[in-house]
Design a protein around this nucleic acid. Sequence first.
DNA 1: TCCCGAATGCTCGAACCAGAGTATATCTCG
DNA 2: CGAGATATACTCTGGTTCGAGCATTCGGGA
Lengths: 225, 225
Amino acid sequence: MAPRTRNNPLALAVLALLWERPMHPYEMSMTLRERRKDESVRLNFGSLYSVVDSLVKHGLIEAASTEREGNRPTRTIYRLTDAGATEAVDWLSDLLRTPVKEFPQFEAALSFLPLLGPDDVARLLRMRVSALQVSITTLDAAREQARAQGLPSIFVLEADYDSALLHAELDFVVGLEASITDGTLEGVGLWRELHTRAAGGRLEPEEIAEALAPYFTTEGAPPTA
Amino acid sequence: MAPRTRNNPLALAVLALLWERPMHPYEMSMTLRERRKDESVRLNFGSLYSVVDSLVKHGLIEAASTEREGNRPTRTIYRLTDAGATEAVDWLSDLLRTPVKEFPQFEAALSFLPLLGPDDVARLLRMRVSALQVSITTLDAAREQARAQGLPSIFVLEADYDSALLHAELDFVVGLEASITDGTLEGVGLWRELHTRAAGGRLEPEEIAEALAPYFTTEGAPPTA
DNA sequence: TCCCGAATGCTCGAACCAGAGTATATCTCG
DNA sequence: CGAGATATACTCTGGTTCGAGCATTCGGGA
């Protein structure tokens, strides 16, 4: 048995759903939608079916029956195996216990900020602030509605977490935009100078390289391993 | 020309590096390491070479020359094209302007928390708190060192962002653990009851299903599209 | 009655990604 | 001065992921 890789959390979602009752894949996807879990787990059809196949191959779930209703395509109904139940608990425990490094796209963008000029960046960040505010409002409304329906908080913790992250990002972006605009961000002078010298056209490559050189060319060893 | 998909931020990193000067792939990876950008962009060799190929195919970069030094494998040196420069600026602008939905694994784990019992979850969360504190300390030390070397903040914004997210997560987890432990989390009574009834063995599937039923079986329409 | 569109349920291929593997060269240290 | 460790520079392979596409059924309106 090939050593399973725990990369796609959709597989965990499948295990969790089958914990409740046997289902066919399409029903899994509909149930995840209904419970808004598709906001926390990337769900698409192709992945769902391959994830299910892989779980079968590793003995974590098994086909319980196949049925056809009317003249629709036949559906295969899967159930959890004992190994699958164990794996669900182990995997979930690991995810809770140990933070895994994520690579948000915005973080990547921040890494390459100096490509753009400070004024452009400030303008884009203001647009991001608006978008984040809209997201927060929408999310809060959804949480409010869930609460109004009497759904206990334990079942919507993921939305609370999402909200916490959104607020943190909003604060960060607001602060960053302000410090660029009022010039208090350390290094913004150098940055602006580079881009005004290149005004009108594309920034000369060498300029960035030269600006960075003093900080990177000489030293090479990691600070702490 | 096939419509390029902007999924792997490593491609943006390649464009950003070639903006400074022509390089061969291995040098790109070393430069990213040196500047600690591999903390913000997922970097591995296989992906790097395929990303470079794909950029060539789409005319965003091109081979400038190939050389061999001593008897080492030949290296192909790439340079940015005009189209590539445009794409870098457009892509970066998009990333800054528009938040994209991410799917952190911890959020997925929170979605399926009720699989475990409240006491187990609380214990695991306490371990997560420790791990997060270590991460924060390590990151702060690295930032401090960068500052001490005189590297202006603009070049390490990504670490500030990371730090902001880590703090937000830490606060969230601390609060969650406390509210589970002291019983103030809404629904924790129901949750605990379910798991003590199943004490000793595996939770009976039907129990979860029944507990969830009142909240999900009747309504189906999204709150807001 | 018949057609349109939505819902149901899955299949397929192409792209993408991870990371182990390969092969040489140079450095290190007794 | 030779053995192993480290650095250089990729290549290969097999799995994963995406999302469009397909085939069917059902409901509702003209």
